[in-house]
């Protein structure tokens, strides 16, 4: 039962990490590619870390919760780096595909 749960969490984490990287390679322009890492971080690494917590907590050497720190750190930093990357791209006027023109075309 525990092994099944662990396997599911690990598989889900690996698949989401993979899909995030696939989006990075496959999507058409920078602004859509920007969505890939925030996704890989939140759900992919998140569920891997939950799996790690459960695994080490059931190994018999007491509860192990320090993986939560990595999750917390990634949840706090992922939006910040995405925001900065988007700002840099807007500043450099990275071209985009899309039907709609951006309202803030040259904000700087």
């Amino acid at each position: 039962m525990l092994e099944l749960l662990l396997s599911l969490l690990i598989l889900a984490g690996a698949i989401f990490t993979f899909i995030g990287a696939l989006g990075l390679a496959r999507l058409p322009d920078f602004y859509t590619r920007l969505h890939a890492p925030t996704k890989a971080t939140t759900l992919g690494v998140g569920s891997l870390l939950i799996a790690s917590t459960i695994y080490f907590s059931t190994q018999g050497s007491g509860v192990s919760l320090h993986e939560i720190l990595v999750t917390l750190f990634l949840f706090i930093t992922a939006p910040v780096s995405a925001h900065l990357l988007a700002k840099a791209a807007l500043h450099l006027k990275v071209p985009r595909v899309g039907q709609r023109a951006a309202p803030g075309d040259s904000p700087q």
């Binding site: 990490t17 990287a21 890492p37 990357l85």
Partner: peptide, 17 residues
């Protein structure tokens, strides 16, 4: 250049995984 930085960021996350 932002594309490459994004790739580096993703690589760091994948390394954590």
């Amino acid at each position: 250049a932002p594309d490459r930085i994004l790739a580096l960021d993703t690589l760091a996350i994948n390394a954590i995984a």
